Structure formats: structure tokens, C-alpha cells
Simulated assay, not measured.
Amino acid sequence: MGRIRQWWGQPDNFHWLSEYLGARQLLRFTRFMMGTIVAALGAAPLLMLWSPSGPHSPIGRAVAVLVAVCCAAMAAMWFTRWPTHQQSATFAVMSNGCIAASCLMEVNPETALLGSMAFAALAGYVAFFHSVRYLTLTLCTAAGTALFAAWEIAAAGDVAMAAAKLLVVTVGVLAVPFSGQVLVHLLSADALNANTDPLTGLRNRRGFHRGARELIAASTGDPPPCFTVVMVDLDGFKKVNDTQGHAIGDRILIAVGESLRRASPAGSVVARVGGEEFLVAETTPASEAQVTAERLRRAVAANPWGVTASLGVASVTLLSIDGDTTRRMVGHLVDSADAAMYEAKRAGGNRIRHSGAAVFRT
């Protein structure tokens, strides 16, 4: 029973797995793979409109068109951007409805039972990126759809055929997600040990330095962009743990991490590098570098627990630099931002201090 509770309570995998794929330059490939799969599934009900075995009633044809439109919208999302967590969860729920509707509108129950195999691909995605609750929803929807089609086959007199096909569908739909969960467990162990903070799902210190170097390598522009590092340290956090307990403290850390993530533009590097210390790295035009810390300070201060943060900022204008210089530069900026953060803390907290700007070149 304890193992079942542990399995049911497994956290959502979306954020850390997205970071994992991003660190390995696989987000683009995954987006196009998902977009292609969804587009193909959306084309199937449209093609059935021209089949003698396809839906002929007005309701059935309307459902086919609606499913195709929904799939086209979801495919467009995948082709254009990596989804947010909420968009991904919505995609999982909508896909359940689209697959079930496509199967149930089939005139031939054998075709409907075969079509329910599409749940295997969806269940695989959900097993990788989302919690057991979403996987349970997918498997229950798949089971209900397959059982309905099998019941129709059995009602027509071929009970053996219904049982055989239902068995094949069940094995196919279950094998993918459970294999996926095993793989996710192995990947999570690697990611958590290497680059990811297990509590917040943000990068850890090692992941920050790696992501910062990749961000610098991808930064170009004329005039050269400004690379900014912000050290964020929560004010009086030890007192929060002592008075409210570590469980509340963990909830605050998770909420602050999510606030920093949301307040940072796409492509930024956000990390938890200590107990209550966070690092954020961004590339911006030099004229906008000074507003970065204030945006982050307000994001932290907006939390419902009344926790504030002291922030230290260090920035540099990026010119032509090599890999070794980049490594040293990131380390220097982190140290400078850390020193500036302590100045803000000594000044009373909930403040920002800047270490000044510099220029690094080869």
C-alpha cells in the first residue's frame, strides 16, 4: 500500500524534463515530433468522412470536423513554441476527448477498437511529462472507449474476437506509459543529480553555470547585448523555518522559484543554488539591464507569505569571448552579484544593489 501511495504521489515531471531536453538541444525535435503526431491524428477523422465506413449522420460528421479542428490548433501550438505547463496539461485533457470522440463515432466497432490504440501515444506523453493523476485519466478514458467498442463486438455475437482485440489493445496502451515511467525515473535521477534542484525543479548551481555559458554562446547583436546575473537571497528565511516549520519553508521556496521563472523572459536561466539563494541570468540590451532586478524583486515580494528578498546585480557587455573566458566571466559575475546582494541585505533587505558593469573580450 505504501508503494502505491508513493507512486500516486510522484510529482509532475514537466518542468525538469523540459529543462533536461532544453539542455540537450532536443526541444525543437520534440516539438516537431509532437506536432506531426497530432496533425496525423487530426487528419484521420477527416479522411473517414470520405469512407463508406465513416460517419454519415450530421452529428458524427460534425464531431469529425470538430476533432480535426482541435487537433490542427494543438499541432500549430507544437510547431510554433514549447508549451507552458498549463498548455501541456490542457493538451493532454483535450487529446483524451478527441481520441475518445473519434473512436466512438465509428460505425464499425472493430475500427473503433483499433482506433483506441492512439491512446498509447498520448499515455506515453503524459507518463513522461505529467503526474500519475493525468496518466490515470488517460488510461481510464482509454479503457472506457475500448470496453465500449468491445462490448458492441461481443453483442454482435463474436465474443472471442472482442476479447482477443481488447487484450491486444490493453497490452499496447499499457506498455507504452509504464515503460515511459521507468525511463522517466532513470532520467530524473540523472537530471536531479546533475543539473536540477529536486525541490523547485529549477537548475542547480551546476545547471546554472552550464545554462549561462550556453546563453552567452547564443547571444549576438549589434550593439552587443548585456549579460546580467542577479543573486536573490530571501530575507529572514531562517526565522520562517524556525517559526512556521520546514514544510511551509519548502512551499515558499517552490513558490518563489515559480515566481522567478514566470518573471523571467524565455531563454533566461533560473536556478536555486543554496538553501534560500537563487540565481537568474538574462541577456538584454544594455539600456534594459537595470530593470531586470526590480522586476524580480517585485515578483518575490508578491508572494502571499510576505517574504522579501535582497538582490545583487552584476552585468557585462558581451564582446567576442572564447569558452575559457566565458567560464571565468560567469564565475566573476556570480561572485560580484553575491557581494552586491550582501550589501543589500546589510542595508535592511528588500533592496537591490548593483556591482557595476564591465566589458569582457578575448
Rank of each mutant, 00 (worst) to 15 (best):
A191L: 08
C140F: 13
P223E: 08
V359M: 12
V126K: 07
L17Q: 06
A40R: 03
V168T: 11
G306H: 10
I352R: 00
V230P: 00
V69M: 14
V229R: 01
W305T: 06
D250P: 09
R361V: 12
F148I: 11
R297M: 14
L333M: 05
R61H: 01
D12T: 06
T30F: 13
T36A: 15
F278G: 08
L135D: 01
I252A: 04
F148T: 11
V230I: 12
A76F: 15
V232W: 00
N204P: 06
G312L: 11
S259W: 02
T141A: 12
R346F: 01
M34V: 04
L186W: 11
V184G: 01
G267E: 02
S310K: 03
Y134D: 04
T200Y: 01
F237S: 03
A142C: 08
V168K: 14
G22A: 11
V291T: 15
W16I: 02
A43R: 04
R203A: 11
M1I: 02
P58W: 10
L319H: 13
R295N: 04
A64Q: 03
A155P: 00
P55E: 05
D190E: 11
G331P: 01
P109H: 09
E288R: 10
T228H: 04
G236F: 10
R81K: 15
S88A: 12
A73S: 08
A164H: 13
V173Y: 07
M94T: 07
S310Q: 04
G245Q: 10
A163F: 09
G331N: 10
F129K: 03
V240T: 06
V65M: 11
F360H: 09
P58S: 08
L47Y: 15
L114K: 08
I248A: 14
I216G: 00
A162L: 10
A92E: 02
Y134Q: 05
I153T: 05
L311T: 10
A73E: 02
G211K: 02
G157F: 11
I216R: 00
A64S: 14
Q290T: 13
S51N: 15
A218S: 13
W82P: 04
L186R: 13
A347V: 13
A154V: 09
T283V: 09
V316F: 02
A92N: 06
V63A: 12
V176T: 15
C103K: 06
S131K: 13
A302Y: 07
I153R: 07
G349V: 08
L319K: 12
G267I: 03
D158R: 07
V307Q: 04
F208S: 01
L49Q: 04
F128C: 14
A160H: 15
L135C: 03
L192C: 06
H246C: 03
G172T: 11
H209F: 12
E294P: 01
T325K: 07
A281P: 01
V159E: 14
V270D: 00
V169D: 03
M105N: 02
P52M: 08
